[in-house]
């Protein structure tokens, strides 16, 4: 167990957490009447739903790209080689830029009273942060277990992991908020 990389621990823990979240979502889903639409017609998406889905895909892809760089080149290379560190940081900052754009659009829609963001959207938006705390707890638990297992013998954790913990928590917070909105529309 102690030979397993902390990054792999994170990936395994997030996969397990994703599975548990899926089961929890299915078990707590309200029993609603079936949705019937005219043949060939799909449920139209709301503006918030489209924006949240697009932003989630972008944030998840950019975060995955950053994580891939760290895993592929290794934590030491990430710390020692500027090109590796700047590339990974660039992807993370791009993901944050996407989230900033999302936040500004939602804030602008909230200020208007033209139905762009209606009461159902606002209810889904209000319930979305419920996914953040569990996701963050799982991420921190994964880091704690991974780092403890990896550095138990030396009792010294390299400083680079502070950097990685911060960015992973930030990305998980952002992605889980967007995921909460996407899931909110599927559940209601």
């Amino acid at each position: 167990m102690s030979h397993m990389s902390p990054i792999l621990w994170i990936i395994v823990a997030l996969a397990v957490a994703g599975g548990l979240l899926y089961v929890a979502v299915r078990r707590t889903q309200r029993h609603l009447p079936p949705l019937t639409l005219p043949q060939g017609e799909k449920l139209p998406k709301t503006a918030l739903q489209r924006l949240a889905e697009t932003s989630f895909i972008a944030v998840a892809t950019l975060s995955a790209a950053a994580a891939t760089i760290v895993v592929f080149f290794g934590v030491e290379a990430f710390w020692d080689r500027d090109a590796v560190r700047l590339s990974a940081t660039g992807f993370v900052l791009a993901a944050l830029a996407v989230f900033t754009y999302y936040s500004l659009r939602v804030a602008a829609w909230s200020a208007r009273d033209d139905g762009k963001l209606d009461e159902r959207d606002r209810a889904i938006l209000a319930s979305a942060p419920a996914a953040q705390a569990p996701a963050l707890m799982v991420t921190l638990a994964a880091w704690m277990i991974g780092l403890t297992e990896s550095f138990h013998t030396t009792a010294e954790v390299p400083t680079v992991f502070l950097y990685l913990i911060f960015w992973s928590c930030t990305m998980v917070t952002v992605a889980s908020l967007l995921a909460g909105i996407v899931v909110g529309y599927r559940r209601s």
Binding site: L43, P44, T46, A47, G115, E119, R120, D121, S188
Partner: peptide
């Protein structure tokens, strides 16, 4: 006219 989305009307 009701200032909501079409999805809300369908729901």
């Amino acid at each position: 006219r009701a200032k909501c989305s079409r999805q809300t009307i369908i729901m």
